[in-house]
Design a binder for these strands. Structure first.
Lengths: 335, 335
DNA sequence: TATCACTGTGCAAGCGCTTGCATGCTACAC
DNA sequence: GTGTAGCATGCAAGCGCTTGCACAGTGATA
């Protein structure tokens, strides 16, 4: 067979020939410089630069089994919780020399599994943020390849968890102090670990402070659903405060309330989760805050350790949350 | 040399052996099924499924020079303009069988160039959204590999442009009709094509409607900068309306105004650009709207055509904008 | 029956890199 | 002078796949 491509692409042989040495040495100048005489390394580096040589990652991957890539898979980039996380994770990965694949599963576990399947052979590991897959599937994946979870608590797999307990505890206490007796929780996707945690934390805190709690389910956690749930929230006559699964939903709810002329916080207090909207709503949203960028950074760090076989046993990194009280919470109205 | 890895990984030989045929035939069963007897294809498919065989992309890439990957590079995922775009582009790419690399340049052209360099050999093409690199660099890249631009107008390269003219024209007309005579434009990054277009459109429309225009520069276009610019906006005594580079900035400005008790729109009208915040501010933001998800989808489509050598000559796909008037615009105050 | 054009498969080279082992060399000790 | 270590480099196989070409079978045509 004759060569198929005769691109202008510079390959290792070109550099080797230019330097009058073997390709092995050129290769080592990049991957194991300490094995070579410093002058040799310098020469190769110079020539490579000059010729514009870049090692072909496919060839390298084929030979070594390492691709220098990772993948981040998440349910919905448009959810404002993820961009900061993604940004931080990609920045950390980049700094460590990795390139990152992005997979958006659109909140769909089948699609998520398909995406992962398509990427497995091209990446050294995965960061799964708010995965919608079953534990079993995730564990299976984890047996074949390094995986770090964000907001999913599966023993045995390294994971970064944003624990809403503290923040939600503070939120409920805040409401209790303001005189609220009946509150509602607008819950997120059932398959979401975060939602389970948040719901549980709300329940527990309400019990502690002796508040009555009603729960309202929602489909896709976004602005629209928040807006649409408004009617149902208002139908809960005695409820004077609402905690929502996330800020988007709170945002939608605020919009729905504004449309109906309901005064926030006088008639109803609203608290979001994630605190990703900053103070950018009006009134500024009281929210349970967390460093989600930190979660992204940390997740990559754990993955990086995994890749270098430094994965300690059963790492479970928990990030705390806290309440940021702004303008959407106030004293309970008196009926 | 002996084999380095003896993974449990199934390779093409395993399938070939199981089927009692050559690897060539197995390979063709995937890439050129029409060359084979249908029964052969079926057999191979069945066995491959059974064994869990997946072609190694690195080997394939090495052999064919095609990776099945593309990259999307953008200045800041945390900017709400990008997630919908990215989402749509990745969905389209996925549907066409491509996986996507993500690069966040952090608004930095050097970093952008570095990211691109790192990815070139792993992708078949690039989507550059709001690139911060110089025309020269981009053209150079385009000569070496398929590139589609979003919001960057370089003749010869396929590009998707969101043309603000119509929407901004409508915005200025809207303000003019409301009796505004003096308006301000809070501008974005100087290197941004979008900003240039928007600034130009504002100037032109103001001239047409005989409005006086002041321009205020801003650094990183985000919520914080918007908030910080408030003082300067208020210092422009006669200005009764402001158009901002994007929604984030408008958002920040609204927050800044609210903090100072300035009534929007009674004391000052505000118009954003991109319309990515929905009606989620209060008052709901009047904004120049565009289908940014459509831009993402379209960009991939153009890239896909490029990759299949169907790139027409000098494709320049322009998406229109329009004004969505909401609550932040009203009659000019009378000083 | 011999010839010819297909068709479906197999052979084996080659994609560009890494790396185990061999080799040549220098330097030092005996 | 010989032996021996140790260092820097080269040789060549192999990573898993694709694909040009060769080749064997088949049926149609002469």
């Amino acid at each position: 067979m004759t060569p198929r491509r005769s691109n202008a692409a510079i390959i290792i042989d070109d550099v080797a020939r230019a330097a009058g040495i073997s390709t092995a040495t050129v290769s080592r100048a990049f991957s194991r410089p300490h094995m070579l005489r410093p002058e040799t390394v310098a020469l190769v580096r110079k020539l490579a630069d000059q010729l514009g040589y870049q090692p072909n990652p496919a060839a390298r991957a084929l030979s070594t089994g390492r691709q220098g890539n990772i993948a981040i898979v998440l349910p919905d980039i448009a959810n404002p919780f993820f961009p900061p996380l993604l940004r931080a994770a990609q920045a950390a990965a980049d700094a460590a020399g990795y390139s990152v694949f992005l997979g958006d599963s659109d909140e769909n576990s089948t699609r998520e599994a398909r995406l992962i399947g398509k990427l497995t052979m091209q990446v050294e590991g995965f960061i799964l943020a708010s995965s919608r897959m079953t534990n079993r599937k995730i564990v299976e994946l984890g047996e074949r390849q390094p995986v770090v979870l964000i907001n999913r608590d599966i023993p045995g797999l390294p994971r970064v968890l944003i624990d809403p307990a503290k923040g939600i505890g503070a939120a409920v206490e805040h409401l209790s102090q303001l005189g609220h007796k009946n509150i509602a929780y607008v819950s997120g996707p059932a398959a979401s670990w975060s939602n389970q945690q948040r719901e549980y934390a709300v329940e527990k805190s309400c019990a502690k402070h002796k508040l009555r709690l009603r729960t309202l389910p929602i489909g896709h956690p976004d602005f629209e659903s928040g807006r649409e749930i408004t009617e149902k929230v208002l139908a809960l006559k005695r409820v004077t405060a609402v905690i929502t699964f996330d800020d988007s939903v709170a945002h939608g709810l605020l919009a729905g309330l504004a449309e109906r002329g309901i005064d926030v916080p006088r008639a109803l207090s609203v608290i979001g989760c994630d605190d990703v909207l900053g103070a950018s709503t009006y009134p500024a949203l009281t929210s349970v805050s967390a460093r989600c960028d930190e979660a992204g950074r940390l997740a990559f760090e754990l993955l990086h350790k995994s890749l270098n076989d430094e994965g300690g046993d059963d790492i479970r990194s928990v990030l705390d949350t806290w309440l940021v009280a702004r303008g959407t919470t106030g004293p309970a109205r008196i009926d």
